[in-house]
């Protein structure tokens, strides 16, 4: 999957997502697939709503963490790519 700035990420329907003490837990129904994320990952996850594009999310991260778009882009693409490979997120 090649990510683009106008790609819109969305959490897969078959994944249950829960927030426990500032940690996001993604759980697959079989219980086999589990992934967790904290800090920036948690912030990024909260921006994933099936409407915002990756560019929108990059801009939010830049505002929140006062970093350049280039750095934010690399980190966010890496984060989203990982979740897409784990079938937690789909790109619509």
């Amino acid at each position: 999957m090649i990510l683009k700035l106008d790609s819109v990420p969305m959490v897969n329907d078959a994944i249950s997502v829960r927030e426990i003490d500032n940690e996001i837990i993604f759980i697959e129904e079989s219980g086999k697939g589990i992934h967790t994320t904290t800090d920036t990952g948690l912030f990024i996850y909260k921006k994933i709503d099936g409407n915002r594009s990756l560019l929108d999310i990059i801009k939010s991260v830049c505002e929140e963490y006062d970093i350049t778009e280039e750095i934010a882009k690399n980190d966010i693409f890496e984060f989203i790519d990982d979740l897409v490979n784990k079938e937690i997120i789909t790109i619509i």
Partner: peptide, 16 residues
């Protein structure tokens, strides 16, 4: 496993 760690976190924070 990560699952065990997560369940442990649930137990420690009194969450079902």
């Amino acid at each position: 496993s990560l699952r065990d760690k997560i369940l442990q976190k649930y137990i420690q924070s009194n969450r079902p």
